[in-house]
Amino acid sequence: MEEIKKIAKQLLSENKIQMVIGFEKGTANKVRPAFFKNADDVEKLIYNDTCIHNLALYLKKDICHHIANVGIIANPNVVRSIIQLASENQVKEEKITIIGISYEGKCVGILDFKAAEEFAKTQPKGLKPEDRAFIEKIQAMPLEERFNYWVETFSTCVKCYACRASCPMCYCGKCNVETNNPQWIPVASHKYGNMEWHIMRAMHLAGRCINCGECTRACPVDIPLNMLSYMLTDFVMDEFHTEAGLSTTYAPALSSYTNVDKENFIK
């Protein structure tokens, strides 16, 4: 932590960056995202293994718009989000300074995009065993049971869209759910509207989700909606051999193709 602080302080005092996005103490023993604008503020910065929020989200919000260069305390999920955002032309290298942290919590110093790509490749990827078990449990259900499982699971969704607001990859200025002429997704949080919302969300993140879990963490009613995205990440990996968040020149699975994509299901 001292090393992170040292780097942040130095960058700020040399005016190489004008703000650092990191963490500070939150309610009780929680941590919360925080924004440090000068070296003295940085004293309040903390980093520990509960700092799991995906801070890359803030790079796309107003608070970063007028800042020449933003420093960001970046665990592997944040690094991968930044790489993914870069591949989608959403962030510029000259406006971001990544202070990398490995999954073990070790500071790896400042990373440019090239180094960030290398770093991301060395960090654990893919599904955690418990997530895989969850997905397999669902896959093992008979068709109807699977359908009912999701209908029931999504029936508690209040359509607050916290999952969307907290996902770094959900940056559209006007989301499909807000398109009302025609109304693609029902506004109401009834079972049908919820199902359609989640189908759409999962599809829009297919091949772009970096498995950070922020969406589910943000959900006020704890819906495991990230499992749809995780399952598709896995599928995209198996099928197209690509993975989001590892290369700034990545072509998202759904906006690219090859001539030999499988078509055994097409008559």
Binding site: P33, A34, F35, I63, C160, A162, A165, A218, P220
Partner: peptide
């Protein structure tokens, strides 16, 4: 409001928030 992500979850869980939208389906 710096860290607020604008998700609206706060209003949905609040016992006193009464804002609503009206829609036809």
């Amino acid at each position: 409001a710096l860290r607020c992500v604008g998700c609206g979850a706060c209003a949905y869980v609040c016992p006193a928030c009464g804002c609503f939208d009206i829609q036809d389906e």
